[in-house]
Design a protein around this nucleic acid. Sequence first.
DNA 1: TTGTAAGCGTTATCAC
DNA 2: GTGATAACGCTTACAA
Lengths: 342, 342
Amino acid sequence: VSVTLADVAERAGVSPATVSRVLNSNYPVAASTRERVLRAVDELDYVVNGHARALAASSSDVLGIVVNDVADPFFGLMAGAVQAEASKEDLLAVICNTAGSPDEELRYIRLLLRQRAKAVVLTGGSRSGEAAYVEEFDALVRQADAAGTQVITCGRPAVAGSPAIALTFDNRRGAEGLTRHVVALGHRRIAYVTGPRASSTSADRLQGHRDALRQAKIPFDKGLVVHGTFDREAGVDAAVRLLDRLDRPTAIVAANDLIALGLIAGARELGVKVPAEVSVVGFDDLPFSVDTFPSLTTVRIPLVEVGRRAGRIAIGHERVAPGSVVRIRSELVVRDSLAAPR
Amino acid sequence: VSVTLADVAERAGVSPATVSRVLNSNYPVAASTRERVLRAVDELDYVVNGHARALAASSSDVLGIVVNDVADPFFGLMAGAVQAEASKEDLLAVICNTAGSPDEELRYIRLLLRQRAKAVVLTGGSRSGEAAYVEEFDALVRQADAAGTQVITCGRPAVAGSPAIALTFDNRRGAEGLTRHVVALGHRRIAYVTGPRASSTSADRLQGHRDALRQAKIPFDKGLVVHGTFDREAGVDAAVRLLDRLDRPTAIVAANDLIALGLIAGARELGVKVPAEVSVVGFDDLPFSVDTFPSLTTVRIPLVEVGRRAGRIAIGHERVAPGSVVRIRSELVVRDSLAAPR
DNA sequence: TTGTAAGCGTTATCAC
DNA sequence: GTGATAACGCTTACAA
């Protein structure tokens, strides 16, 4: 069905090579010939076959970005920044949405490797636990390295011996500092709403929270931990579970801002005042966290900078040795959703 | 540098054809042979060349989604929904971020056509005005049709005679209803903060606003219109311009929720109470609009359903004739950011 | 300036 | 079951 370069050549009365030259304008071609070729292209609605081209020229100008959830600004911010850098080098960045599925993630990585992408940027934490996944993932990273595709992770723990370049977030320390701050204000009964069990980000942040509790000699109470997902709804659900009872906590620490947002919304629905009756804090400092009411106390991760950095490494503007680990610092951001307990 | 199928064949002591058969498991192969081949694949870290495969098999399992801004949930919601549908058919959806640049948009569409994507889903309004862009865009849609790539637009005005399938938003009617509602509450001095001039979405919504003013016999005052972009910052800027003066409007209509969010934030900074001193309304009903303070009165566009619909059409689960137009209805959502003027 | 022809790394159609 | 071998549609020396 498809019209090929040969068809165009025939129609223009020239050789395929000439058509190719016109199309790539990387070689002198007589103006009149060029003219005829372009007309033929137009008349036939010809579109080069990218696969054939990539195969023949063994070139590739695409760069992949893998995200868990495009609708979550946490990922959107990083992805957008990577894309912006990529476009500076005329690379085309394609974003792949796994919707949180490990299988989809692997499928997309495979796709990108098959397409010989220049680089693959993986955003978000890894999945601990699932052995098959971890093994396959590591194998893919090795293959990528062998095939010359650079792998850059953003927010995933560095794997010893892996050729991937890791931009890591100090989730544990950030969470520790956050809870320490909550404790410093006098809170003792502090709940925690965590993300998916399998997520390394969840695990690290929860660990940081526990570190802070231990330092303050506050016993860790499992009954005050709610497990869920990383989205707003999880926060709303958790609010109901934590606030609709007599022995409610004076503060709730959320594993991310989206959950915190849900907590605030849930509290409002239940008629519980934030921060007067319960404090809520988040993590990530997504743009909306300044617009919630009350505005959110949280831990800032410079996501746009992370994306920009990953992009620059991917396009070779910043040279980093394979296997390097770049630690991204997070920072406490104090706003209005946290106050001393009454 | 790259290891090829032939390398694997040699290592396994079989022919390339056999390796191919093992890899695609679409043909009987002796278990022992298969075993050897797989080991060779593993040892060599072999990754099939997707371009060669696509060329030889003339197959393609990718679907493209073009968005203006990944970090904007307006696009993220649609893109995520399209992706979710695509994955049901084992298609891989790649999202391309144009960052609002017409050139990038065209580049990505070209990329997708070259890659012989199954379908291309274009989200967001079109750019009116720029003739060269419009012409090139229409040419690409024609080429896509010729090459068998289905084009589906979401929120872009339908083009007569175009083979693209258009899911259109009733921006004009939605905006008209919104402003009519504002007027009904008694507002007469109503400002409008619009998006990019070249955007069809901007133009349509502003037109709807003017329609409503005309019906109410309220003269249109250019001094009350602020031009900007579709993001939060534009709203903050507009707030300063509109509220920091004596003859300030009693209500401000924003071209989208992000702008409205900025307006509310700006008003708060200026110490102007919403809705007591100024009402603010938005458009789109993004998820956060229920979490702002006060919550946002807006017009709902069912973005997730739109994306799902586009996805279903793209994967052939829903049959729609080329050139069809599907009108998506919008709906007024009344919340707290709008009140009668004092 | 233009044409010829040899790849690029797969898959698919034959034979064996 | 397995192995040659011809496509697939393009780029790029090398010739002319």
